[in-house]
Computed example of a mutant assay.
Amino acid sequence: MYSERPPLDPQPLSPYMAWAGCRNRDAILEVLKGVLPREKSHVLEFAAGSGMHVHYFARHFGHITFHPSDSDELLLPHIEERTRQSGLGNVARPRRLDLSQPHTWPDGEEFHAIYCINVFQVAPVSIAGGMMECTSRILADGGFLFVYGPFLDYGRFTSAFDEEFDRLLRSAGEDGWSLKDIAELNRAAGRNGMRLDDEIDMPSNDFALIYRRA
């Protein structure tokens, strides 16, 4: 869609987010093909944004119902329209879910997998606690949480690009914009009965982190 990286803009409908989503979606898909259930199941997406990932993945897993969610209610009609245009029958109606507000979390539902993509670099690390607590409540037995994005690897940058990206994020002056440390997510997981089960190196110095119940 874009041959060069557009200017940094983490708003869900921005050209930058479209570029980032297209850049990483196939690598993520290959990992998901190896870990998502092979039988009929339900998968939840935290922070679905424009819906770019849920609609791309859903067409590859016809036996799975995908449930997009986001904290921003204004994005839900956009996701719903994208579902209508796609013709996909395995994408559920989007829902509001704010990881900092437990009353918005699913009640009486279980999900076989949950994923969250490219969120932590533009969100406060405090949402990790809500993410892990919510996951521990609604994750089906044997299920997992998949978190993707750029992170500090236990206190160190994995590339000069990530170090520059972190400086760029911090210079924007927005609260919470910075690369977060995998160790911080692991601590939040431990406080909520979760554990890091797998850490996968991905293209562009990103990571795929898979958490399961401890």
Rank of each mutant, 00 (worst) to 15 (best):
S3M: 11
R5N: 07
P6G: 10
D9G: 04
D9L: 02
D9R: 05
P10E: 08
N24T: 06
R25N: 11
R25G: 04
D26V: 09
E30A: 11
L36F: 15
S41K: 10
H42E: 09
E45V: 08
S50M: 03
V54H: 08
A58N: 04
H60W: 10
I64S: 03
F66K: 01
S71V: 13
D72A: 15
L74W: 01
I79N: 09
E80T: 11
R82H: 14
S86D: 02
A92D: 05
R96Q: 13
T104A: 08
P106L: 11
D107G: 13
E109R: 08
E110Y: 07
F111R: 12
I114V: 14
Q121M: 13
S126N: 06
M131Y: 11
L139Y: 09
F144M: 12
F151D: 01
R156S: 14
E163Q: 13
F165G: 08
F165Y: 14
L169P: 00
L169R: 04
G173M: 03
G173T: 02
K180H: 15
D181I: 06
A183S: 10
E184H: 07
A188S: 12
G190E: 15
L196S: 01
L196E: 03
M202H: 00
A208G: 14
I210R: 14
I210V: 15
